[in-house]
Protein backbone atom coordinates (compact mmCIF):
# COMPACT_ATOMS: atom_id res chain seq x y z
CA UNK A 1 0.00 0.00 0.00
CA UNK A 2 1.22 3.45 -0.69
CA UNK A 3 0.80 4.57 2.94
CA UNK A 4 3.19 1.94 4.26
CA UNK A 5 6.36 3.22 5.84
CA UNK A 6 8.88 0.46 6.15
CA UNK A 7 12.29 1.57 7.37
CA UNK A 8 12.28 2.35 11.11
CA UNK A 9 15.01 4.85 11.92
CA UNK A 10 14.90 4.99 15.68
CA UNK A 11 13.46 2.56 18.14
CA UNK A 12 11.35 4.33 20.70
CA UNK A 13 9.39 2.58 23.44
CA UNK A 14 6.18 1.13 22.07
CA UNK A 15 2.99 1.68 23.97
CA UNK A 16 1.31 -1.47 25.18
CA UNK A 17 -2.48 -1.68 25.05
CA UNK A 18 -2.96 0.06 28.43
CA UNK A 19 -0.49 2.76 27.42
CA UNK A 20 -2.50 3.39 24.27
CA UNK A 21 -5.77 3.62 26.16
CA UNK A 22 -4.23 6.04 28.64
CA UNK A 23 -2.77 8.23 25.91
CA UNK A 24 -6.09 8.30 24.06
CA UNK A 25 -8.02 9.33 27.19
CA UNK A 26 -5.52 12.08 28.00
CA UNK A 27 -5.74 13.35 24.43
CA UNK A 28 -9.53 13.52 24.70
CA UNK A 29 -9.42 15.40 28.00
CA UNK A 30 -6.99 17.97 26.63
CA UNK A 31 -9.19 18.49 23.57
CA UNK A 32 -12.12 19.25 25.86
CA UNK A 33 -10.05 21.64 27.97
CA UNK A 34 -8.98 23.41 24.79
CA UNK A 35 -12.37 23.68 23.12
CA UNK A 36 -15.04 24.08 25.79
CA UNK A 37 -15.78 26.90 28.21
CA UNK A 38 -17.28 25.00 31.13
CA UNK A 39 -16.46 21.29 31.30
CA UNK A 40 -17.31 19.18 34.33
CA UNK A 41 -16.48 15.61 35.38
CA UNK A 42 -19.33 13.42 36.62
CA UNK A 43 -17.90 11.95 39.79
CA UNK A 44 -19.66 9.38 41.92
CA UNK A 45 -16.67 7.94 43.72
CA UNK A 46 -17.09 4.71 41.74
CA UNK A 47 -14.14 3.09 40.00
CA UNK A 48 -14.78 4.47 36.51
CA UNK A 49 -15.14 8.05 37.69
CA UNK A 50 -12.13 7.65 39.96
CA UNK A 51 -10.19 6.49 36.94
CA UNK A 52 -11.39 9.53 35.00
CA UNK A 53 -10.18 11.81 37.75
CA UNK A 54 -6.81 10.05 37.84
CA UNK A 55 -6.43 10.54 34.07
CA UNK A 56 -7.43 14.20 34.38
CA UNK A 57 -4.76 14.71 37.02
CA UNK A 58 -2.20 13.17 34.65
CA UNK A 59 -3.43 15.10 31.61
CA UNK A 60 -2.79 18.52 33.14
CA UNK A 61 0.05 17.76 35.53
CA UNK A 62 1.79 19.70 37.06
CA UNK A 63 -1.11 22.16 36.80
CA UNK A 64 -4.29 21.40 38.72
CA UNK A 65 -7.26 19.75 36.98
CA UNK A 66 -9.07 22.60 35.20
CA UNK A 67 -12.57 21.15 35.74
CA UNK A 68 -14.92 20.92 38.71
CA UNK A 69 -16.64 17.66 39.67
CA UNK A 70 -20.38 17.00 39.69
CA UNK A 71 -22.06 14.34 41.78
CA UNK A 72 -25.76 13.55 41.46
CA UNK A 73 -26.36 12.18 44.94
CA UNK A 74 -29.38 9.90 45.23
CA UNK A 75 -29.10 9.92 49.02
CA UNK A 76 -28.82 6.17 48.66
CA UNK A 77 -25.08 5.97 48.56
CA UNK A 78 -22.76 3.79 50.54
CA UNK A 79 -21.14 5.76 53.36
CA UNK A 80 -17.69 4.45 52.35
CA UNK A 81 -18.15 5.91 48.88
CA UNK A 82 -19.23 9.37 50.03
CA UNK A 83 -16.30 9.45 52.41
CA UNK A 84 -13.96 8.47 49.60
CA UNK A 85 -15.47 11.11 47.29
CA UNK A 86 -14.83 13.83 49.83
CA UNK A 87 -11.26 12.73 50.41
CA UNK A 88 -10.49 12.81 46.68
CA UNK A 89 -11.94 16.31 46.36
CA UNK A 90 -9.75 17.40 49.22
CA UNK A 91 -6.63 15.64 47.94
CA UNK A 92 -6.71 17.30 44.53
CA UNK A 93 -8.07 20.64 45.72
CA UNK A 94 -11.11 20.48 43.44
CA UNK A 95 -14.51 22.09 43.48
CA UNK A 96 -17.40 19.66 43.94
CA UNK A 97 -20.94 20.47 42.86
CA UNK A 98 -23.50 18.14 44.48
CA UNK A 99 -27.04 17.81 43.14
CA UNK A 100 -29.08 16.13 45.89
CA UNK A 101 -32.00 14.15 44.51
CA UNK A 102 -33.66 14.65 47.91
CA UNK A 103 -33.91 18.43 47.22
CA UNK A 104 -35.85 17.74 44.05
CA UNK A 105 -38.19 15.37 45.91
CA UNK A 106 -38.65 17.86 48.77
CA UNK A 107 -39.76 20.72 46.54
CA UNK A 108 -41.98 18.53 44.39
CA UNK A 109 -40.00 18.58 41.15
CA UNK A 110 -39.64 14.81 41.53
CA UNK A 111 -41.79 12.14 43.16
CA UNK A 112 -40.39 9.13 44.91
CA UNK A 113 -41.06 5.89 43.00
CA UNK A 114 -43.19 3.20 44.64
CA UNK A 115 -40.25 0.78 44.59
CA UNK A 116 -38.01 3.34 46.32
CA UNK A 117 -35.31 3.10 43.63
CA UNK A 118 -33.73 6.46 42.87
CA UNK A 119 -31.41 5.70 39.96
CA UNK A 120 -34.06 6.67 37.38
CA UNK A 121 -34.63 9.91 39.29
CA UNK A 122 -31.11 11.18 38.63
CA UNK A 123 -31.88 12.45 35.14
CA UNK A 124 -33.77 15.59 36.11
CA UNK A 125 -31.32 16.84 38.76
CA UNK A 126 -28.45 16.14 36.36
CA UNK A 127 -29.99 18.10 33.50
CA UNK A 128 -31.15 20.93 35.79
CA UNK A 129 -27.64 21.26 37.21
CA UNK A 130 -26.04 21.20 33.77
CA UNK A 131 -28.36 24.03 32.73
CA UNK A 132 -27.94 26.03 35.92
CA UNK A 133 -24.14 25.94 35.76
CA UNK A 134 -24.10 26.19 31.97
CA UNK A 135 -21.80 23.18 31.71
CA UNK A 136 -21.02 22.60 28.04
CA UNK A 137 -18.99 19.40 28.24
CA UNK A 138 -19.80 16.64 30.72
CA UNK A 139 -17.28 13.83 31.17
CA UNK A 140 -18.73 10.43 31.95
CA UNK A 141 -17.00 7.14 32.67
CA UNK A 142 -19.14 5.08 30.27
CA UNK A 143 -17.47 2.29 28.36
CA UNK A 144 -18.62 0.68 25.14
CA UNK A 145 -18.14 -2.84 26.46
CA UNK A 146 -20.77 -2.32 29.15
CA UNK A 147 -23.84 -2.80 27.05
CA UNK A 148 -25.08 -3.07 23.47
CA UNK A 149 -26.56 0.44 23.22
CA UNK A 150 -23.35 1.93 24.58
CA UNK A 151 -21.39 0.07 21.93
CA UNK A 152 -22.74 2.62 19.45
CA UNK A 153 -22.02 5.74 21.46
CA UNK A 154 -19.47 8.19 20.12
CA UNK A 155 -16.66 9.53 22.28
CA UNK A 156 -18.09 13.05 21.83
CA UNK A 157 -21.84 12.63 22.10
CA UNK A 158 -23.96 15.66 21.33
CA UNK A 159 -27.04 16.19 23.51
CA UNK A 160 -29.90 18.42 22.54
CA UNK A 161 -31.35 21.13 24.77
CA UNK A 162 -33.32 18.43 26.60
CA UNK A 163 -30.16 16.47 27.29
CA UNK A 164 -31.29 13.74 24.94
CA UNK A 165 -29.18 11.47 22.82
CA UNK A 166 -30.42 11.05 19.26
CA UNK A 167 -28.77 7.92 17.90
CA UNK A 168 -29.71 8.67 14.32
CA UNK A 169 -28.13 12.11 14.45
CA UNK A 170 -24.74 11.07 15.75
CA UNK A 171 -21.82 12.70 14.02
CA UNK A 172 -19.29 10.58 12.22
CA UNK A 173 -16.17 10.39 14.39
CA UNK A 174 -13.03 10.37 12.28
CA UNK A 175 -9.41 9.68 13.16
CA UNK A 176 -8.68 11.36 16.47
CA UNK A 177 -10.36 14.59 15.41
CA UNK A 178 -13.29 15.35 17.69
CA UNK A 179 -16.00 17.79 16.74
CA UNK A 180 -17.27 19.50 19.88
CA UNK A 181 -19.31 22.25 18.24
CA UNK A 182 -22.73 22.73 19.74
CA UNK A 183 -25.43 25.36 19.82
CA UNK A 184 -26.37 27.35 22.92
CA UNK A 185 -28.29 25.12 25.31
CA UNK A 186 -26.82 21.94 23.85
CA UNK A 187 -23.98 20.14 25.51
CA UNK A 188 -21.59 17.33 24.72
CA UNK A 189 -21.13 14.20 26.80
CA UNK A 190 -17.56 13.01 26.58
CA UNK A 191 -16.50 9.43 27.24
CA UNK A 192 -12.71 9.13 27.45
CA UNK A 193 -12.96 5.49 28.61
CA UNK A 194 -15.03 4.39 25.60
CA UNK A 195 -12.49 1.85 24.42
CA UNK A 196 -11.60 0.37 27.81
CA UNK A 197 -12.96 -2.97 28.96
CA UNK A 198 -13.68 -3.80 32.59
CA UNK A 199 -10.47 -5.81 32.72
CA UNK A 200 -8.45 -2.91 31.29
CA UNK A 201 -9.84 -0.68 34.03
CA UNK A 202 -8.75 -3.07 36.75
CA UNK A 203 -5.34 -3.70 35.24
CA UNK A 204 -4.73 0.01 34.95
CA UNK A 205 -5.91 0.62 38.53
CA UNK A 206 -3.34 -1.97 39.61
CA UNK A 207 -0.59 -0.55 37.42
CA UNK A 208 -1.14 2.99 38.65
CA UNK A 209 -1.91 1.96 42.21
CA UNK A 210 -5.16 3.94 42.27
CA UNK A 211 -7.08 4.05 45.54
CA UNK A 212 -10.74 2.93 45.43
CA UNK A 213 -13.57 2.83 47.96
CA UNK A 214 -13.17 -0.20 50.20
CA UNK A 215 -16.46 -1.82 49.11
CA UNK A 216 -14.87 -2.90 45.82
CA UNK A 217 -12.88 -5.47 47.81
CA UNK A 218 -14.22 -8.50 49.64
CA UNK A 219 -15.58 -7.80 53.09
CA UNK A 220 -18.21 -9.26 55.42
CA UNK A 221 -21.64 -7.75 55.20
CA UNK A 222 -25.26 -8.48 56.19
CA UNK A 223 -27.17 -9.08 52.98
CA UNK A 224 -30.53 -10.36 51.82
CA UNK A 225 -31.55 -11.76 48.46
CA UNK A 226 -33.95 -9.97 46.10
CA UNK A 227 -34.36 -10.53 42.35
CA UNK A 228 -31.30 -12.75 42.44
CA UNK A 229 -29.04 -10.04 43.90
CA UNK A 230 -27.49 -9.59 47.32
CA UNK A 231 -28.75 -6.26 48.67
CA UNK A 232 -27.78 -4.62 51.92
CA UNK A 233 -29.69 -2.51 54.42
CA UNK A 234 -29.16 1.26 54.29
CA UNK A 235 -30.88 4.65 54.04
CA UNK A 236 -32.79 3.18 51.09
CA UNK A 237 -34.50 0.57 53.23
CA UNK A 238 -33.93 -3.02 54.20
CA UNK A 239 -35.29 -6.52 53.89
CA UNK A 240 -39.01 -7.07 53.42
CA UNK A 241 -41.04 -9.79 55.08
CA UNK A 242 -39.74 -13.15 54.06
CA UNK A 243 -36.29 -11.86 53.05
CA UNK A 244 -33.75 -13.32 55.44
CA UNK A 245 -30.58 -11.52 56.34
CA UNK A 246 -27.37 -13.51 56.04
CA UNK A 247 -23.75 -12.63 56.77
CA UNK A 248 -21.63 -13.15 53.67
CA UNK A 249 -18.26 -12.28 52.23
CA UNK A 250 -19.02 -10.02 49.29
CA UNK A 251 -17.72 -7.19 47.17
CA UNK A 252 -19.26 -4.69 44.74
CA UNK A 253 -18.44 -4.56 41.04
CA UNK A 254 -20.21 -1.24 40.56
CA UNK A 255 -21.39 1.32 43.08
CA UNK A 256 -24.69 3.09 42.62
CA UNK A 257 -28.02 3.51 44.30
CA UNK A 258 -27.96 1.10 47.25
CA UNK A 259 -31.54 0.03 46.63
CA UNK A 260 -30.67 -1.61 43.35
CA UNK A 261 -26.93 -2.27 43.42
CA UNK A 262 -26.17 -5.82 44.41
CA UNK A 263 -23.04 -7.29 45.94
CA UNK A 264 -21.42 -10.38 44.50
CA UNK A 265 -20.12 -13.18 46.66
CA UNK A 266 -16.38 -12.94 46.44
CA UNK A 267 -13.21 -13.66 48.36
CA UNK A 268 -11.21 -11.18 46.25
CA UNK A 269 -9.77 -8.81 48.82
CA UNK A 270 -6.76 -7.55 46.86
CA UNK A 271 -6.37 -5.98 43.43
CA UNK A 272 -4.69 -9.07 42.02
CA UNK A 273 -7.50 -11.25 43.28
CA UNK A 274 -10.09 -8.90 41.78
CA UNK A 275 -8.31 -9.00 38.42
CA UNK A 276 -8.21 -12.78 38.50
CA UNK A 277 -11.89 -12.84 39.34
CA UNK A 278 -12.90 -10.34 36.64
CA UNK A 279 -10.83 -12.24 34.09
CA UNK A 280 -12.65 -15.46 34.90
CA UNK A 281 -16.09 -13.95 35.37
CA UNK A 282 -18.91 -15.10 33.16
CA UNK A 283 -21.31 -12.23 33.88
CA UNK A 284 -21.09 -8.66 32.67
CA UNK A 285 -20.66 -6.09 35.36
CA UNK A 286 -24.07 -4.56 34.79
CA UNK A 287 -25.94 -7.82 34.36
CA UNK A 288 -24.50 -9.07 37.62
CA UNK A 289 -25.24 -6.17 39.84
CA UNK A 290 -27.61 -3.52 38.54
CA UNK A 291 -31.32 -4.15 38.79
CA UNK A 292 -32.13 -0.99 36.85
CA UNK A 293 -30.51 -2.33 33.69
CA UNK A 294 -32.40 -5.56 33.91
CA UNK A 295 -35.81 -3.93 33.75
CA UNK A 296 -35.96 -4.40 30.02
CA UNK A 297 -33.80 -5.37 27.06
CA UNK A 298 -33.66 -1.76 25.96
CA UNK A 299 -33.38 -0.25 29.44
CA UNK A 300 -30.03 1.41 28.95
CA UNK A 301 -30.91 2.86 25.59
CA UNK A 302 -34.08 4.41 26.98
CA UNK A 303 -32.21 5.97 29.85
CA UNK A 304 -29.61 7.37 27.46
CA UNK A 305 -32.29 8.89 25.31
CA UNK A 306 -33.77 10.49 28.42
CA UNK A 307 -30.45 12.12 29.12
CA UNK A 308 -29.31 10.08 32.11
CA UNK A 309 -26.04 8.99 30.58
Amino acid sequence: MTATIDAPVRTAPRLDSLGRLESEAIHIMREVAGEFDRPVILFSGGKDSTLLLHLAVKAFWPAPVPFPLLHVDTGHNFAEVIDFRDRMVERYGLRLVVANVQDWIDDGRLTERPDGTRNPLQTVPLLDTITEHRFDAVFGGGRRDEERARAKERIFSLRNAFGQWEPRRQRPELWNLYNGRHRPGEHVRVFPLSNWTELDVWRYIARENIELPSIYYAHERDVYSRDGMWLTEGPWGGPRDGETVLRKTVRYRTVGDGSCTGAVESEASTLDEVIAEVGASRLTERGATRADDRLSEAAMEDRKREGYF
Binding site: A149, A151, K152, S194, E297
Partner: peptide, 17 residues
Protein backbone atom coordinates in the same frame (compact mmCIF):
# COMPACT_ATOMS: atom_id res chain seq x y z
CA UNK B 1 -27.48 -5.56 17.17
CA UNK B 2 -27.64 -2.83 19.73
CA UNK B 3 -30.30 -0.22 19.27
CA UNK B 4 -33.99 -0.85 19.75
CA UNK B 5 -34.95 0.49 16.33
CA UNK B 6 -32.37 -1.86 14.81
CA UNK B 7 -33.70 -4.86 16.60
CA UNK B 8 -37.17 -3.97 15.43
CA UNK B 9 -36.12 -3.52 11.83
CA UNK B 10 -33.53 -6.27 11.90
CA UNK B 11 -30.82 -4.05 10.40
CA UNK B 12 -27.72 -2.43 11.83
CA UNK B 13 -27.84 1.36 11.65
CA UNK B 14 -24.72 2.67 13.27
CA UNK B 15 -21.08 1.85 13.82
CA UNK B 16 -20.73 -0.30 16.91
CA UNK B 17 -17.51 -1.08 18.72
Amino acid sequence: DGLRSEREQGITIDVAY
